[in-house]
């Protein structure tokens, strides 16, 4: 059962990585606008003003 000593810290590490990745995505504005970004591809000409500003 000593494998648990390895697997549990490994699980914690994976959790930390997952949380870090999610925070990174949020901070990069990946979840800021979930409704309208998909429609950008259909717009004729996308003037710079209509696009969301690049993330800081």
């Amino acid at each position: 059962m000593s494998i648990a000593l390895l697997l549990i810290p490994l699980g914690l590490l994976l959790l930390a990585v997952a949380v870090w990745a999610f925070f990174w995505a949020v901070n990069n504005g990946q979840f800021d606008d979930l409704d309208h970004v998909a429609e950008h591809a259909l717009e004729d000409e996308s003037p710079a003003a209509a696009l969301p500003k690049s993330p800081p």
Partner: peptide, 17 residues
């Protein structure tokens, strides 16, 4: 909004684990 998303993300991932 972003703060809320991060809180939800942490709680959700932690609950799963």
């Amino acid at each position: 909004r972003r703060g809320m998303q991060k809180r939800i993300g942490l709680a959700g991932l932690a609950a799963m684990q």
